[in-house]
Every structure is written in structure tokens, then in C-alpha cells.
Computed example of a mutant assay.
Amino acid sequence: MKSQTIRRWSFIHTWTSLICTAFLLMLAITGLPLIFSHEIAHLTGDAPEFKEMPAGTPHLDLEQLVRSAEAHRPGDLMQYFGWDDDDPNGVYAIMGKTAGGDPNESHSFMIDARTGEAMETPNANGGFMMIMLRLHVDMYAGLPGKLLLAFMGLLFVMAIVSGVVLYAPFMRRLDFATVRPNKSTRVRWLDLHNLIGVVTLTWAIVVGLTGVLNACADLVIAQWRTDALMTMIAPYKDAPPLAERGPATRLIEISKTTVPGAEPSFIAFPGSRFSSEHHYAVFMKGDTHLTSHLLTPVLIDAQDLHVTATLGRPWYMDALLLSQPLHFGDYGGMPMKILWAALDVLTILVLGSGLYLWWVRRRAAVAVAKAVAVEAEVA
């Protein structure tokens, strides 16, 4: 590789890395506890404990559970209702002052589907884990924070690509995984930086790109609403405001009939971001580990409960839905979470060693410049 080309790639690698490193370190550190969020909730006692009841105890119907939720948060409006993947007896409810309000101002809690008892989930509304989540998602800056993190993710991918370009000719002179023990500390750290970077290469690109997509989720959802949802609810454009919603009792039955072989993941209530002012939207999931992350929305008229439409999923929504669990290693159970955590720690080492190498190189350049200046003065 020509020296001019090397300098160009080195410039790209240095500055894309430096610009994004502080943000990437923050994302890597906050991402570690988020990988084990379910386990941490159980260890800290923040996961709700359901009463011991005979096996097969029937669940209350959906409208009864909605009424229980509304009684628990009088004055708030129902936004979403979903099912706990860890416990079939658990139902989560999300409520807010308005149906379509800011998700960060909503309140989440669990309901025992057998008794209707509401149980608070502190981690979902505040505390350490919520701080980690908000820092990781938007740095408490809303959409501008998300877009800034998306840009940092793109710089991270550029830094990885430029690093590979620089590493390829370097490795022609050394065997793979060589760390030169007899060289200076800077050279040893350079070898480790390159080695760990190559080992984590594929994972870093996957996490970086899925992170960019997740950071753009608000824009993706807005596009979905404009493209698919608005087309389906066009006949309701001039309809009067919904005076009273129909009972939610049969929503699951109706949705299962509409999408055979699927199970409900969550319900968006009228006025929420994933529905319309006149509809329930029941999001149905598949029965395999992969298809359980792909959701098919069934729009049900909130007044007479007839099915208005079953929305197809555009490719960008599929990409978003699949990227979210992949970003946190939520596809393969605990072994994959441990692998994700180990790779996360290695990435922190790569980022930290990169900063160290830049600082040592800069300090050496400053020392040389001072020495040249002193020599010039003496002369």
C-alpha cells in the first residue's frame, strides 16, 4: 500500500475513532448491565413475585385486566398491554396522562393475569437500570440524542473499516495474534489493540449497525405510520372522535382468528403511537424464536370490534424488529448473553487502548516539536 494511501486511511481511522470513542465507551459501559436486565431485576428483587396458585388457574378476561390497571392508576389512560415472556401469568401495562404521550413519561407495571393484582416494577420507571437505559438510548436528549448516537455509530463502523485496511498490510510482516513482548509498552499495546480489534470485528460491526438502526427507531416508526398505518385508516379520516371504546374482552380471540398460528405480543390502545384514534392494534408474533420478533399488526375498530385491516410489515420494520434483540444478544439465552458481555468488555479494551495509543503518539510528537524548537533557538 502506498504511503500516501496509508496516511489517508490512518487519518480517517484516527479521527473517526477519536470523535466517537467517548460516546462508544459510554454505550459499551451502559450496555453491559442492559444485557442482563432480566437477571438483575430478579437479583435485586425488582421483578414482581406472583402468588402461588394451583396450576391451570384461569386468567381474567382482557377487559377485566384493563379495568384493574385503570383502577391502579386512576386518571391515566391505557397505552399498551402486553404479555411477559418469562411468566405466562404476568401481563404488563403501560399508562400515561394521554394515550399518545411521550414514552419517557409513561408508567409501567405488572398485573397478575389470574387475580388482576397490580404490582409495581421499579426498574421500569426509574433507578439504576432506567438511568443506564436512557443514557444508552438517547442520553436524556430525546430524538436529537438518538440521532447523535446514530452518527457516532456510523463513525464507529468507519473506524472499524479503516482499521481493517490498515491492519491487513501490517499483518503480512507478523504472524496472526503476535504480541511482541520484547518491544516497548506502546508497541505491545498496539499489538493487543490490533488483535482484540480483529477478534471482535464481526461483532462490533453487527452491534454498531444495529445500534444505528435502533437509534433511528423513531424515524422508522414515523415512516411506518405514514406509509402503512395512514393508508389503512384513511376511511376514518373524517370520522368523529371516539366517544367510548368497545370492551377489550375478545381482542385476542379476534386476532388469533385473523392471523392463525400466531400469539399476541402486545396491544396498542386507541390514540397510542402504534395505533390510531379509532383502533386497537393487536401485534401478533410467530411461534419460533426468530418469528417471535416479527410482529403482524391487526387493526380492530375500537367501537364495533370488526377487523379493519392486517398490516403488512415493510422491510425496514422487519430490520428494526430483528435488530433490537440482536443488539443486546437476546436470541440465544444465557450463553449468548455471556458471549455478548465478553465481547463488550473486549471492545472497551479496544477503545481504551486506542485512546492510550493516540495520547502516547501525540505526547511524543509534542516532545519532538519542542526539541526541534530548542535546537533552532540554540542555533
Rank of each mutant, 00 (worst) to 15 (best):
M232W: 12
T288V: 10
P48S: 11
G271L: 09
Q324W: 05
R225D: 06
P74I: 04
F328C: 03
E244Y: 03
T296V: 15
P270R: 11
W315C: 04
G75P: 15
A369H: 13
I19D: 07
P241G: 09
S255T: 10
L320W: 08
L343D: 01
K237P: 11
Y331A: 03
K146D: 04
A204I: 06
G127S: 13
T115R: 05
D304K: 08
H107K: 05
H279D: 10
L349M: 10
G126Q: 05
R172C: 03
T226G: 12
A319W: 09
L299T: 06
M317R: 04
G145C: 13
K237C: 12
A319F: 06
P48D: 13
N104V: 10
R363K: 12
L174V: 14
K237S: 10
L77V: 14
A55C: 00
E263P: 09
L201F: 08
Y356I: 02
L326P: 02
N104F: 07
V368M: 07
I221M: 10
R363M: 05
K146T: 15
S3Y: 09
T185P: 01
T202C: 11
A69I: 03
F11P: 00
M152I: 05
G56V: 07
G75T: 10
L25F: 14
G82I: 07
S255Y: 04
Q79S: 14
L25R: 10
I252Q: 13
T249L: 12
A341S: 09
P122Y: 02
I205M: 13
L229I: 10
V198N: 00
K2W: 15
A228Q: 15
G329M: 01
A302E: 09
A302H: 03
P247D: 07
D76R: 08
G101S: 13
D227C: 06
P103N: 07
N104C: 07
F170Y: 08
M130K: 15
A379W: 14
W315H: 04
R114T: 10
D46M: 05
V212P: 06
L166K: 01
I221H: 11
G142N: 05
H59M: 12
D138M: 06
S275P: 12
F81D: 00
Y92H: 11
S37C: 00
A69Y: 03
W15L: 02
H13D: 00
L213H: 00
M53K: 13
L155P: 01
D344I: 06
L357V: 00
F176T: 05
A217G: 04
K146F: 03
V345H: 09
E253V: 10
T16S: 08
E63D: 10
A243Y: 08
A281T: 12
A118V: 07
M95K: 01
L24F: 11
K2A: 12
T30F: 00
L149C: 03
A141C: 09
L201W: 11
R362D: 04
L192V: 07
C216V: 09
R363F: 14
A222Y: 01
S162G: 00
P48E: 14
A118E: 08
H38A: 04
I35F: 02
F81T: 05
P144R: 14
M230A: 15
S272Y: 03
E70R: 12
T249Y: 05
L192N: 04
F151S: 06
K256H: 14
V220A: 12
S10A: 08
G153P: 03
